[in-house]
């Protein structure tokens, strides 16, 4: 092994790079959807309670 040459590590193929980008995008969208879902659930379940003034 040529020790003078720096290691390139794992080199991804164009297909692997493209699919990794798509996976990241899908994870981002899913997390965003989950946050929006929990926001909506919170508003529906607690909304009237939040808006009702303390006696």
């Amino acid at each position: 092994m040529d020790e003078t040459k720096p290691s390139e590590g794992v080199v991804l193929t164009p297909r692997q790079l493209r699919n990794r980008r798509l996976r990241n995008l899908a994870i981002g969208l899913s997390v965003g959807l989950l946050a929006a879902l929990f926001y909506a659930i919170t508003i529906v379940k607690l909304g009237p309670g939040i808006l009702r003034p303390e006696p």
Binding site: L12, T13, R15, Q16, R18, N19, L22, R23, L25, A26
Partner: peptide, 11 residues
């Protein structure tokens, strides 16, 4: 065999 799945494969 390169385990390079995109969202479609996970779906």
């Amino acid at each position: 065999g390169d385990y390079a799945a995109g969202p479609a494969e996970y779906f």
